[in-house]
Design a protein around this nucleic acid. Structure first.
Lengths: 128, 128
DNA sequence: ATTTGCCTTCACATCGATGTGAAGGTTTGA
DNA sequence: TCAAACCTTCACATCGATGTGAAGGCAAAT
């Protein structure tokens, strides 16, 4: 599919899809006339990129972890140096930090909402 | 405490602390000479702000949810309009999205690392 | 008292992600 | 064949978060 269709399917502006390619996150084929050609998997990949960007990761970090995300163990040649492994571990830890921070604060919001809602109830769910 | 000390305790540049104040995230007292004066709770608040910023929230969103985070139910006057409640719920949902995306991808990284590590073992932890 | 270090405000620069528009070639369909 | 919709690259603008430096006031220690 061409860039316009991928854009419509993902809701991501074509401009951004070109940018992600420039950042080495996408690698579409090229038609004879120079048009970008994406395979069906690109839709998922774009959504993944968007989710990670929205979660505060930079394109640089995404680029480094992306090659390791879509293989549940399929491709793991000896190409994983100790340094890269350490980097991945570090990044995983940073992500865990984020998850904990976000969960904590989301729970606080929900707890607050629950408290207020309980309060506003005209008839509390009386236990007795 | 003054801004320099808060900066050292949190690792956040004084410049940024002033910026957060400009963004209405911090509201330090002022000494007679104009110096900002922070109370002990500011350390926690700054760490909270940093965590949320690092997780992709903007100062604008943080400003809106911050008043509801530190009260486990303490202060909930009638000042919570339905619109604000809806906004909080939406934001909580968006945060949940982020958490799921991050968890999923972190787990993929860890699974990959586990697979490779298992592979690279010179002597597998033979079961028999 | 003077130095040293911290504080103030103001302003301009950077950086990553994104928006927008120009100028021109391609595909599709009336 | 011509128009509409799509594609290309290039470039400049914006926006939020952050860095940095200037010019000057304040405070604690030698």
């Amino acid at each position: 599919m061409r860039i316009g269709q991928l854009s419509r399917r993902t809701g991501v502006p074509a401009r951004m899809l070109r940018y992600y390619e420039e950042q080495d996150l996408l690698h579409p084929e090229r038609a004879a006339n120079g048009y970008r050609l994406y395979d069906a998997a690109a839709v998922h990949r774009v959504q993944q990129i968007r989710g990670l960007l929205d979660s505060g990761l930079t394109t640089e970090i995404i680029r480094r972890i992306l090659p390791f995300l879509d293989r549940p163990g399929e491709i793991h040649p000896g190409c994983l140096s100790d340094e890269v492994a350490a980097l991945l571990k570090e990044e995983a830890d940073r992500i865990t930090q984020r998850v904990e921070c976000l969960s904590r604060n989301r729970d606080a919001i929900l707890a607050y909402l629950a408290a207020v809602q309980r309060d506003g109830d005209p008839a509390p769910p009386s236990v007795r």
